[in-house]
Computed example of a mutant assay.
Amino acid sequence: MKAYEQKQLLARIDREGATVGADIPERIDVQGEPIDLQSFVFEIKRRDTVPAGERERVQQAKKNLRRERLQRRQRLENEWAEMTWAEGEELVEAIIGLDRALNALESLGPTNIEAEADAKEAADKKRWMNFLKKALGREGSGPRT
């Protein structure tokens, strides 16, 4: 494969809408172990929420999928000269499929918008207080009484 072809494939992976219309692979090797990825994702997505017993399994699956995605991307970044265009295309399709599966798994469970807003507000207040302490030269001092 040529350098410009490798750049095209990497750009395809990084494109914001890359997963739109992409299929989750039916079966994929993750960390050397074959996984029926499509059925796993559909089984988990079928439920409204992830049961407590399944959460750890889903978290581990997401971790393994991220690791596999990173390894495949690094292969495309580092070993592109030894690949054919078809091999690069196949690798990109697999990466996009992994992204699609990760997106589906990340969107699981109810989102608590109020809790997220409260956490953001608390973080904003903390940053503001740290800024004021630095600006007023009171970085090391605790609360004043």
Rank of each mutant, 00 (worst) to 15 (best):
D118T: 08
L108M: 12
K62G: 05
T111K: 15
Q6C: 15
A104K: 06
I13Y: 05
A3S: 15
R138G: 10
I13A: 04
R75Y: 02
R27M: 15
A117S: 14
A135I: 01
E56D: 15
Q60I: 13
K133G: 05
W128Y: 11
M83Q: 08
T19E: 02
S39K: 09
E77L: 11
A22S: 04
G88V: 02
E89L: 08
L105I: 06
E5A: 10
T111Y: 06
K2H: 09
A18V: 04
D99N: 02
E43H: 13
R47Y: 08
D99Y: 02
K63P: 11
R75V: 05
P110K: 15
S141A: 14
E90D: 04
N103D: 00
I13S: 06
E56W: 00
A123K: 12
T19G: 01
Q31C: 14
R100T: 02
M129Q: 07
K45S: 13
I113N: 15
T145P: 04
A3P: 13
T145H: 11
T111G: 08
K133D: 05
A117Y: 08
E16D: 09
G21A: 06
T19P: 09
A22M: 02
P25H: 00
A81S: 07
K125C: 06
R100D: 01
I35G: 12
K125F: 14
A81P: 09
V58K: 07
G140Q: 04
A135K: 12
K134A: 03
E26Y: 01
Q74A: 03
E116P: 01
S107L: 07
S141V: 10
G21S: 01
E93V: 02
K62P: 04
R138M: 10
L91C: 09
K120S: 07
R47V: 15
I95E: 00
I35W: 14
G21E: 04
L136Y: 09
R138V: 08
R127L: 03
P110Y: 13
V20P: 15
E116V: 13
G32N: 06
Q31S: 12
A104I: 11
Y4H: 13
Y4K: 08
E68I: 07
L132R: 08
E139L: 14
R47N: 13
R46W: 11
A135V: 07
N103C: 00
F42M: 00
R144M: 14
R12M: 07
E26L: 05
E116D: 10
A122G: 14
Q38Y: 09
I35R: 06
K45L: 02
S141G: 09
M83P: 14
L136H: 08
L98N: 05
V20R: 12
A94Q: 13
G17T: 08
K125T: 08
E139D: 13
D36W: 00
A22H: 01
G21M: 01
W80A: 07
I95M: 09
T111C: 03
L98W: 00
K7A: 13
E77N: 13
N103H: 03
P34S: 11
V58T: 04
N78R: 02
